[in-house]
Design a protein around this nucleic acid. Structure first.
Lengths: 210, 210
DNA sequence: TCATGATATGAATTAAAATTCAACATATGA
DNA sequence: TCATATGTTGAATTTTAATTCATATCATGA
């Protein structure tokens, strides 16, 4: 392997590995870590159980690798939108749009990803997540930076930028989640999220004296 | 038992049952359904394994009962705030405040509750949750009603009221979650949530032409 | 005090899955 | 063609944890 050129063998190895991960993703995302056995993954991916152990040292290692791949796909797609040209509002809009797209395109990924970042990852021993947590944290911090710049420019009102990042992420997760559970029940798009978040929901000018 | 008067025996039975549930709550909320054994619950609650099976027919039944209790505590507290006197904004503020309070007071409860309502409940066979899902749905619908009334009165802007409920719930969950993970890092209160949600985050008057 | 029914106990059983590894297949190149 | 290395197999083993149940303990009232 070394640097540039993966040999035929290596490509085959990687293809097999990928096939296993892909199958496992499907199963785990539907039924969770503990409700899927290595034998099932083996059968579904058309390898023997023993073979799985040639690729991953154990079930947890397989799961961890999956999660790392998943979170790469997911977060790298979001991160890149924040470096997009345009002002802070445009960046954030792009990010929300990307999130909706990535979400809709990869429901399996998302189910797993959510289970890891949201919802106090229960599935696997807690010792697993720190790495994924960190990536997620990094994304939130980057988003917070955009908010911070927007505040500096007086584009946004003065709230703790990190909390704004958490809040925006929270809204979009909640709506997307809801969509996964009850598709089509209450249609929405990036604009709705942006509007709820950036326009006021309240009708009157000043909130305090009604 | 019948109607009014629980005998001493019955009170004792209920106390024991409660002790077991309480212990199980602590363990499950920290490590999840699959990473806690009946033996651990037995040891921690100072009963024998066999005894647990006198109270609950199996591990899943124990877990389900726990979840039902938890969701009762949690949701009934929130529901009642929505019936509070005052206008829609006041009701919602009361609800957010109650949520923060209940959350802070019962971190164990919350961890479990969240794992069930958020995060595609992976822990236990999916066949478990519909009951809890329904309760949660009911709460969201009630919250949506308040939004709807507020919109009718032109107190709030015209968004799909159910999505507003989901969104508000999403923001508060996200912030509270974050607080559980990193306590004290970014302090916030009900006002912050209300302000982000009801006041605009955007500084300018009209969002469209910047 | 003792007999009886109700409860609690935890070692033994059972069940389910993870993991191993000796045997097998297949590809490579001498 | 054959020897070797590399990858694959799945039955057998091990591990882990849920569940059972014969036995022990305890409380009650005769």
């Amino acid at each position: 392997m070394k640097n540039g050129k993966p040999s035929r063998k290596e490509k085959e190895y990687l293809r097999h590995r990928h096939e296993i991960l892909q199958t496992a993703l499907e199963l785990f995302s539907q039924r969770g870590f503990h409700n899927v056995s290595m034998h099932e993954i083996a059968t579904a991916s058309e390898f023997a159980v023993g073979t799985l152990y040639k690729f991953f040292s154990n079930k947890e290692d397989l799961y961890r690798n999956l999660i790392i791949d998943v979170s790469n796909v997911f977060l790298s797609s979001l991160m890149s939108t924040l470096a997009t040209p345009g002002n802070e509002l445009e960046k954030i809009r792009a990010c929300v749009e990307a999130k909706i797209k990535v979400f809709m395109d990869n429901l399996d990924y998302v189910r797993l990803y959510m289970a890891e970042t949201q919802g106090v990852s229960f599935n696997v021993k807690t010792s697993l997540d720190p790495e994924i947590r960190d990536r997620y944290e990094k994304f939130l911090k980057q988003l917070a930076c955009v908010f911070e710049n927007g505040i500096k420019k007086r584009l946004f009102k003065k709230f703790d930028p990190y909390l704004l990042a958490v809040a925006l992420d929270g809204i979009s997760n909640a709506l997307l989640f809801h969509h996964v559970e009850y598709p089509g029940a209450h249609p929405f798009d990036a604009d709705l999220i942006i509007n709820i978040f950036f326009q006021q929901v309240y009708e009157k000018e000043d909130l305090r004296d009604e």
